[in-house]
Nucleic acid binder design. Structure first.
Lengths: 339, 339
DNA sequence: TTGTAAGCGTTATCAA
DNA sequence: TTGATAACGCTTACAA
């Protein structure tokens, strides 16, 4: 019931041709004389005809929609979305976007909605609580699924992530090179693979340097600005001789810096800081923040590529994008003065 | 052709009931004995049945999709999207999101795609070059359209914006109250209503204070960080005795601050700064930036509300959300020290 | 309490 | 170069 909208039949009648001819003109799917072609196009214009996609989809089976489930609308996922849209557009696909808000039930409902719409593929940042078993059911379906940013191991779903362990290790080793020994780390929920990996990188760096890992140096909080704020305050309370801190995402960094400013601590003299995720604003902070940067946009692009590979029934696995350590001054390095 | 997927008929056969019964069970649309209900549900489970939305939509006419066309994936539109999703979810709608990248042709193509999918409504940040005439055609259709953030006047399309003129005026008047007379303004393209309005606010403030408006104090640039960077440099070159600058969005502010840092200018002693759009990071800048803040999330929520009002065929017009001046130190105000 | 069947607007296979 | 027509999978009047 397409509320009074013209359909192919209306256009056909208006142009005095058959319904099939109109369809073929619109799709360029067979030769039509220029005369009738023009008649049809004019009728389309006059009646303001717009094809009913759901009818087309029902007949032909392709939705030309890409489902993207992110966690929330934060800058990191925005960069990913940008990359995703760029690649999706090349296929003529549009984006069905939703945020799960780290809620497993919401994610389930959204996955079902996407499957019901027969999207061409699903990009998913799996949510805390996502269990292997339940996700495997979705992997079994004929809609290709690719994890972004995070992973749930052992459910055979390919993923695009970044070299989190290595990046974290690099960052913490850099702190160690500066001579710091009491190094704290602020982590989001450890049910999320990326956080587990960053923790592992932190531990490796300390182990390699034969520094004891102390549980009070490790704070787990909600991965938001507010969490970072609380965590750094706890860290400073619990570890009196804290020299440096590794902050594992951009949102938490905001809270950490806020708390440090409130306490009038100097960076890096009183406390050195290294964090994860580059965002343009960090260049403005004084001293500039040393960061492990992930190529978020590239992650988005690769995820769509991986999806396409998977649709061709080729075997695919995890793909890790290279992180990079961007040296600022917050670690203790001195920047050469600007000319 | 739903590639080997089970459909209602399969489920019905598997449960030994009619196709109608299955449909009714799934939709709770008529009384079914608990016995058969269970049989059906089990069949659904066993066959992993997922309703084909396009078939439902074809039959019933509703897509339960909301089209959202933003300009790009920047923090301001993210906040809007967050609000939009919140309200859309209450209706059970999903979001079809795309960015126009300020490209009129892309916007046209995207609008057509949304209409073809029979979305329940369209939220649109109209693009530079969007002419009244062409947009009116879309307004005539039966899909409700609401402008967000920006407006194209005289095409009878309702909009949710913010009090840009007033906000800008307030900001510039605040600078004037500090005694500044040489006040520059950095604007994005003037084909965008919000920028025109902020310009108007700037001019009003100067006029009210009987300050001459000088064309070299007004720089128009692309509304990105790079644009802000170039614009402030030009401004400083052209106006040797510049005292203050009003920056009309958050992205441009980034570039402006970067240039100011590079030149080692002090804020507010050498140049005072007031800008538009609050983002969390500005709290970390020293001195803190004085800002006109727009309630971006609320704009998104209201836009969906307006859409619904419009669907009920009630008359609707423009709706302006209140901006707020957040006083920082960059204008010359002294903040009381933190306890 | 359940079943039958028409029809939503396309595309694509025949046939002319 | 064009037309008639059978699906696609669902909802929903109407029957039983």
């Amino acid at each position: 019931m397409d509320h009074g909208r013209p359909n192919l039949r209306d256009v056909a009648a208006h142009a005095n041709v058959s319904i099939a001819t109109v369809s073929h003109v619109l799709n360029g799917t067979r030769l039509v004389s220029t005369a009738t072609k023009e008649k049809v196009l004019q009728a389309v214009e006059e009646l303001r005809y717009f094809r009913n996609e759901s009818a087309r989809q029902l007949r032909v089976g392709t939705s030309e929609l890409l489902g993207v489930l992110i966690v929330d609308y934060n800058p990191f996922f925005m960069d990913i979305l940008h990359g995703v849209e760029k690649m999706a557009t090349k296929q003529g696909w549009k984006l069905l976007v939703a945020s799960t808000g780290e809620d497993w039930e919401a994610q389930k409902e959204l996955l079902n909605a996407l499957i019901s719409r027969r999207v061409e593929g699903i990009l998913l940042a799996p949510v805390v609580g996502a269990t292997k078993h339940e996700l495997q059911r979705y992997a079994k379906g004929d809609i290709p699924l690719v994890f972004i940013d995070r992973i749930v191991e052992g459910c055979g779903i390919p993923a695009v992530t970044s070299t989190n362990v290595y990046g974290a290790q690099l960052a913490v080793e850099h702190l160690i090179d500066h001579g710091y020994r009491k190094i704290g780390v602020i982590l989001g929920s450890l049910s999320i693979s990326s956080m587990v990996e960053r923790k592992k990188g932190y531990e490796r760096a300390l182990n390699n340097a034969r520094i004891d890992i102390q549980s009070e140096c490790m704070k787990v909080c909600n991965a938001l600005s507010s969490g970072g704020y609380q965590a750094i305050n706890q860290l400073l309370a619990d570890v009196s001789d804290l020299e440096a801190v590794f902050v594992t995402n951009n949102l938490m960094l905001l809270g950490v810096l806020k708390a440090i400013q409130e306490r009038s601590l100097r960076i890096p003299e009183d406390i050195a800081v290294v964090a994860v995720d580059f965002q343009p604003w960090v260049e403005l902070i004084k001293p500039s923040i040393t960061l492990v940067s992930q190529p978020a946009e590239k992650i988005g692009e690769m995820a769509v590529n991986l999806l396409m590979v998977q649709r061709n029934r080729e075997p695919v696995a995890e793909m890790m994008m290279k992180t990079e350590l961007i040296i600022g001054e917050s670690c203790g390095c001195r920047k050469s003065p600007v000319l």
